[in-house]
Amino acid sequence: MSRLLIVEDEKNQRELYALELQDEGYEVDQAINGKEAVDMVKNNKYDAVIMDIRMPEMDGIEALGKILSRDKKIPIIIYTAYSNYKSNFMTWTADAYITKSLNMNELKDKIREVITARAEA
């Protein structure tokens, strides 16, 4: 069973994603900001990280850099309400950049894709 980390400061959203992804059959951990995410990635092994950008204390961009500096191969999917972060070249280092949407199918497809790609590699 693949293990995912969801990084999202808004509790309701975070829990919603967790529920949805658990329904898909993933084991899901939750972090409330970038800082916590960096710590959790340090201590645990995840198959993919789904991360928001705008978060207090440490934002997604900074966390992205810190996580990748530790483990370059871990798939990271940016999942945010803001499409304009695409212009920040740091986000290019993520495996995917998905704009939040009522329909979570795009996210689910992308998670499946990156996990499969990693398993094959």
Binding site: L16, A81, S101, L102, M104
Partner: peptide, 13 residues
């Protein structure tokens, strides 16, 4: 977008 996504998600559930 954020509250909308949340609302929609739970409603679908």
């Amino acid at each position: 977008r954020n509250p909308l996504v949340t609302m929609g998600g739970y409603a679908r559930r």
